[in-house]
Design a binder for these strands. Sequence first.
DNA 1: CTTTGATATTGATATAGATCAAAAATCAAT
DNA 2: ATTGATTTTTGATCTATATCAATATCAAAG
Lengths: 254, 254
Amino acid sequence: MIYVMIPEAGCTIRVDLCRNLILMYTENKITSCENCARCWTNFSQLSQEELDLINRNRYEASFKPSEIIIKQGSPSSNAIFLVSGLAKVYMEGYSGKNLILNLAEPSTLLAGPGVHVNSRYCYSVAALTQVQACFINFDVIRKVIASNPGFAAGFIEDLSDKALRLHQKMLNLTQKKMHGRLAEALLYFADNIFRSDEFEMVLSRQELGEMTNMAKESVVRIIGEFENEHIIHATPRSVKILDRDKLNVISEKG
Amino acid sequence: MIYVMIPEAGCTIRVDLCRNLILMYTENKITSCENCARCWTNFSQLSQEELDLINRNRYEASFKPSEIIIKQGSPSSNAIFLVSGLAKVYMEGYSGKNLILNLAEPSTLLAGPGVHVNSRYCYSVAALTQVQACFINFDVIRKVIASNPGFAAGFIEDLSDKALRLHQKMLNLTQKKMHGRLAEALLYFADNIFRSDEFEMVLSRQELGEMTNMAKESVVRIIGEFENEHIIHATPRSVKILDRDKLNVISEKG
DNA sequence: CTTTGATATTGATATAGATCAAAAATCAAT
DNA sequence: ATTGATTTTTGATCTATATCAATATCAAAG
């Protein structure tokens, strides 16, 4: 494991977990939105003037693991970007049961569709690692949307992309059974978050259950089965995918 | 039941089922988009010029019950509006199992988020009654989005609203149990589609199951229970809600 | 080190809900 | 009306998965 000290954040972080931050940090690009086009592809649509506007209306905050960045139901006045770190995006359901929708990494916009409808966040977001987040007032974003059609189109694309994933997740959760759902979650981590077949397991078994809609005990049991069949090697805090093909089949066959 | 003959469509339709069509028909408003602002609120954002553009690039088609209007996976080149009739919006899942997302009535935009991402429809739509539909080429819509910020904002709102509902449905399907899910579906028909506590059941028990993610036999059994408890009165083709309060409680308590 | 609180694991049991199979009802078409 | 084809209903089983309870593990704090 390679660690690096980040003086501004007052902490040490694992390099493999925080690629983006390292990248930005080493390139000294955290100072302003102008340099943050890499944050969200869509920001590259903006003119200098518009970037300035946004830059004047944003502020940063940092969060420790488990701290809540967005609270479901609260008024949504800001669009939020992670600058660094990992967070879980989840809905608070009935009788305290959560449903983890996905993980958020840097360069994704966090706001939720509620922003454009009832000005309430429709999901919560909580930090999994140390997180640096950037808050941009939504009135400003709306202003830019109104004046920059390209940006608006990018926004539509972003919303659509998320909706599409949600549709897919809906099918997965309702039609696959446990093995398939868990296999898919593991592949999600490997492919979409860590881009490696060996990764740190940032979620507890309980949370893994909230993500795949199953009881934590079932998570444990199925992980055990996967291990017996030499499909993965797992500890409570790490996973290594040994037989990606098999895992794919399980994920697809449900 | 009041029926009315629609010469152009070559059919007779039930008045209570086709409010919008009757309204438009009697007001002679089907001829062009200009008159169709009522179709989709967002169209009222358009200038005369833009309306003309859309009007020149649209065509209508009619569908008989059970005919497919949109096929999941096929290239999405059109935005579609129902002019009249009712349709079911559903995803085709694994091993032929469908998931009905919602019903579509006139004045809703049908296209799906796939349009803005991979140009594929991410769901199918099939007519439940006789349906008149209006197809608008998506390139044209995109052009208008690019030139009219208000329209773009309306589009974003529409997408967001749908995403929000999807989030809600996700929670419902994963966290409520059968009774709650079925109660909710019945209230959906009463409140969102028919706006009456007595309505024609346009879905078969099988389809009702596809909508609430349960087996058709379970649908039958639970409808039976609801009848025994005098919460609803149901026949295979009709439902009357007798005790809305109880149904609400069941829907919320899961 | 020990203690402690959280999390993970394991085994036993309970249950919601699916599946299967057969009968009954409904509907469409002669 | 009569037939044949769907759809609905019912009852009997089966199974995936949750729940419960007990134990083991681990990391942090004293």
